[in-house]
């Protein structure tokens, strides 16, 4: 069974919500990535999104742009990222990993080769920001290899498209909370709640919400109606301030712990 599906099934039966941290691969330090992944799972991550740095991240705000620039300056690319994931998988065989990135690095790597290498390393899902539903070339190879292709839904997505996505969705759907770039602060809970309800009315596939989730309060508020919360820029910014690989692990723990606690308190209250 795909690890994403297994993890969401397990969470559902435990009435828990998924905490999904996003890190930008190779930032703050390429040497510390594997330890950082373990630190994330130890502090309550249910699934990890790893951003593949790209030179032209059109959908990202300054925090993730700068993280990508730093990693690229250190030569980080897909080959290394696959190596880190394979290393992580030696001791963690259950935490799902989703690669998130832009199409060109995948296109240049080659779709078949990308799918083969990713599965070999232990990747479970792929989210290509600039590759919409209609572009099937990438999907074919990713799904044939047993990974999940994760779709984004947005506040602007039309009802007809949403229906098509819900039909094709596997793993989980990632709802972008507002029209904007990563790291912006434009969260409107009511609008997101309405959207997530509309998605859930159409599919049993779990729904994650990302963009604008920054801390325990915003995470807990989202988790009241979504299955998973994705925390990206706020974490990346915290990690960027860490002076060493060890400090980054400590910072990740300190950052995630209250968020995990808030999510669990929310589920407990709900169950009671």
């Amino acid at each position: 069974m795909n690890r994403i599906d297994a993890r969401f099934a397990q969470l559902k039966s435990a009435s828990r919500k998924a905490l999904v941290p996003f890190i930008s691969a190779g930032d703050p330090s390429p040497d510390g990535v594997v330890a950082l992944l373990h630190a994330l799972t130890e502090s309550g991550a249910d699934l990890i999104e790893i951003g593949v740095p790209f030179s032209d991240p059109m959908a990202d705000g300054p925090v993730i742009q700068h993280a990508s620039e730093r990693a690229l300056a250190k030569g980080v690319g897909l080959a290394q990222i696959f190596g880190w994931i394979a290393e992580f998988r030696k001791t963690d065989t259950t935490t799902p990993i989703v690669l998130m990135g832009y199409l060109n690095p995948v296109e240049i790597h080659g779709y078949e080769r990308f799918a083969h290498d990713a599965v070999g390393a232990g990747v479970d899902g792929v989210l290509l920001v600039d590759c919409p539903l209609e572009e099937s070339q990438a999907v074919g190879a990713i799904e044939a290899a047993g990974m999940r292709r994760i779709f984004l839904t947005a506040p602007t997505t039309s009802a007809a498209r949403l229906a098509a996505m819900c039909e094709k969705a596997r793993g989980f759907l990632y709802h972008v909370a507002f029209a904007g770039i990563t790291g912006a602060n434009r969260l409107s809970l009511d609008a997101v709640r309405e959207r997530v309800a509309a998605i859930k009315a159409r599919t049993a596939t779990p729904v994650a919400v990302g963009f604008g989730v920054r801390d325990a309060d915003s995470a807990a508020a989202i988790a009241r109606f979504a299955d998973a919360v994705v925390i990206g820029s706020a974490l990346v910014e915290t990690l960027a301030g860490a002076g060493s690989a060890q400090a980054a692990c400590d910072a990740a723990r300190a950052f995630l712990a209250p968020i995990r606690a808030a999510l669990d308190a929310g589920s407990a209250a709900h169950a009671a």
Binding site: L103, V129, D130, E134, E135, P155, T156
Partner: peptide
Amino acid sequence: GIYVAETLIEPLA
């Protein structure tokens, strides 16, 4: 083609 983030699909349409 159209290779953009989901948010822009509808505005482009």
